[in-house]
């Protein structure tokens, strides 16, 4: 290939990429947290709710999971504006990503709540915990532990999906890269750097979430087994 790769533009434009990367991380963080909260509520509705809540939950999840994020973003950014509800690109992007993440994590949490055995509910009731207490102290922590691995995968997918909101001119790293390539005409090099940036971000996010999982969900059960107690507590 008779092509000279040139990365000289990086010395001029790296700050823009860094700003973009910051916005990408911010979008990911907020939409993952808000999306998980939606996911917990909707997952609970679908697992325990009455017919009405179950139906609404199912419609929300199926509508979002069976349409592209790009079209959802257009619908929120352009569609709502045409109905008279104008939003800036970043809040619109956040809203689109949160709604999207909510639908996927709802399915994950539904499976998580389904994985908690009936005995756990009975045990919580036996300790005279109210329904709210039993949910927050018994059910949710265990469900969260059970779904942490798929949830981690979902968060990484959301990080990658933030690239799509560059199309509604939200100023994240892909949008920054597109601007840089239109000024430098070094399209391939710019997108190579962009690919590496996403690779680093996604690997870091995965490691961070695994680390959180290891610390938060360590087996909290007592380390001393019954036999060792009977043998003098060795």
């Amino acid at each position: 290939m008779a092509y000279n790769f040139q990365f000289g533009w990086l010395t001029v434009y790296w700050e823009r990429l860094l700003d973009g990367a910051f916005n990408t991380m911010l979008l990911t963080l907020i939409s993952c947290i808000a999306g998980s909260l939606i996911g917990i509520v909707v997952g609970l509705c679908r697992q325990r709710g009455g017919l009405l809540l179950r139906t609404f939950g199912a419609i929300y999840v199926e509508a979002i999971r069976n349409t592209p994020l790009l079209v959802q973003a257009f619908l929120i950014y352009l569609g709502l504006a045409s109905l008279g509800w104008r939003m800036d690109p970043i809040p619109a992007a956040m809203l689109a990503l949160t709604i999207n993440c909510g639908a996927y994590s709802a399915e994950i949490f539904r499976a998580g709540f389904a994985s908690i055995k009936l005995a756990q509910h009975e045990a919580a009731e036996g300790l005279a915990l109210s329904r709210t207490q039993s949910f927050f102290y018994v059910i949710l922590p265990q469900a969260l532990r059970n779904v942490w691995v798929p949830l981690t995968g979902q968060f990484v997918l959301i990080l990658l999906a933030t690239s799509i909101v560059s199309q509604i001119s939200a100023e994240e790293i892909s949008a920054a890269a597109s601007q840089i390539q239109s000024e430098t005409f070094r399209s391939f090099e710019v997108y190579m750097v962009l690919a590496v940036a996403y690779l680093i971000l996604s690997i870091l996010l995965k490691l961070l979430l695994q680390g959180i999982g290891n610390i938060a969900f360590r087996d909290r059960a007592p380390r001393i087994s019954l036999t060792s107690i009977s043998q003098g507590g060795k």
């Binding site: 990484v156 990658l160 999906a161 933030t162 690239s163 799509i164 560059s166 892909s174 399209s187 391939f188 997108y191 190579m192 962009l194 690919a195 996403y198 690779l199 996604s202 690997i203």
Partner: peptide
Amino acid sequence: GQGIPPLVLLFL
């Protein structure tokens, strides 16, 4: 493939 967004794959 799993660490680069499909959009960036498309641009590349």
